[in-house]
Design a protein around this nucleic acid. Structure first.
Lengths: 226, 226
DNA sequence: AACATAAGAATCGTTGAACAATTCGACAAG
DNA sequence: CTTGTCGAATTGTTCAACGATTCTTATGTT
């Protein structure tokens, strides 16, 4: 009666997290990242605190949290709005990705991280095979999140998590997710191979081209609408 | 009557910045980073809200902000504490520095960034000449902050700012700031020269050694106390 | 004496109401 | 068409209250 216990430790992080404000933040974060709240939309304190059955004070604490994650834009005396990313924001996000992911692929890959990456690649391929491009998208995010774990830095993992959440604000502009995700399924596989064979420099160069293309595709689909 | 207006836009950022909660956060952030509040110390909601003349709710909003910056540790139902960095935290912070600063020195330096770096180096040298090691410390921080601007990424600048604020939590354990800062005044100058002459790879290698030594020194002074 | 336990104090978490401050739109005046 | 003014709506902040949780201290048992 001891081997099942170790697994529980992974859930321990969920225990500490219980204040109402944090749970409210979780709900809102999810709603934002799934596009339920659209960028630019104002989130009324009264309406939402009412709908969720929490006080305005508690809701405001949640707003602060999300503001710090850059998902909400807090304008004094005017309220909070779902963040609208500018083209410069997207460019900056990709600049950061080049730095963080670039450093990751240059490191000696640990078996653990490679495992995560491999899983994500396989998931994306399976999802692509059944034409589920939404699932390809989430698998792709998992892929890049896994890449970053190569750095073995909790803070970089966290930074990447936030960065991807921010990027999700603009992913919704893609009307046709297939065009955006399809080319990268194969490239993920290729990048994985480069990592496995220890060709770090090639992997880094490959990743740079990868990110350039991804950014271009994203900005192209994004600019016209803004 | 149109050319004077454009210049005003730069000051627009100053307008949004003011809410009691944010100003309170500014005050507390400063107090923490100057060591007035010691790591591990509990910050009582009642005492502080009383002392600053703000309500508990407003203070709690400020606490959330600082918690997100990792300066405060928020434990449910127990209050907020000034963060205590573990040795692993320090190691992780330096891991992130290697990634962010390493990427910075590999880039083609802009004259603007070089100017900031040069200033910081000169300030450190002047302060060292007059034995003001506290000033050397702040100039050194400015040096590394300036390094990061080479990335030309607002988000990386912000990440660095937070990272350095976090590191300041442990800088205070240095009883003799001279031992810690003195060796790096010269190395800052050397790194600047490498950047100016465009020898990016050498600069990167030099920086790695630099950070290794700095981390070692810091951990050495830190570990025994913990 | 050591240790478990239970009552009590202190503090946090959250709420709801209240009022001041600010924004924004509409409408009037120049 | 710009500028001033009024008022409704919303946010910013405070305050008082109460339940929930943690910490402290006193109590009683082995």
């Amino acid at each position: 009666m001891e081997h099942g216990v170790a697994d529980l430790e992974r859930d321990r992080s969920r225990l500490g997290r219980s204040s109402t404000a944090e749970r409210v933040a979780d709900i809102l974060r999810e709603r934002i990242s799934e596009g339920f709240f659209e960028p630019g939309q104002r989130l009324s304190e009264e309406a939402i605190s009412d709908a969720l059955g929490v006080s305005r004070n508690t809701l405001r604490e949640a707003f602060r949290l999300l503001g710090h994650e850059r998902l909400l834009d807090h304008r004094l005396n005017r309220g909070v709005f779902v963040r609208i990313l500018s083209a410069e924001d997207v460019a900056d996000l990709y600049r950061v990705r080049r730095v963080i992911e670039g450093a990751a692929v240059r490191r000696n890959p640990t078996p653990q991280a490679l495992g995560l990456i491999k899983e994500a690649v396989a998931d994306a391929e399976r999802a692509a095979a059944r034409d589920d491009w939404r699932a390809v998208g989430t698998a792709n995010i998992r892929f890049h999140q896994a890449l970053v774990t190569l750095n073995e830095s909790p803070r970089l993992d966290e930074a990447m998590r936030q960065l991807l959440a921010e990027l999700r604000l603009v992913f919704h502009v893609m009307k046709n997710p297939r065009d955006f995700h399809e080319p990268f399924v194969e490239r993920n596989r290729r990048l994985l191979e480069l990592l496995e064979s220890g060709r770090a420099d090639e992997a880094a160069a490959f990743l740079d081209g990868y990110l350039d293309d991804a950014e271009r595709l994203l900005v192209h689909a994004y600019e016209p609408n803004a």
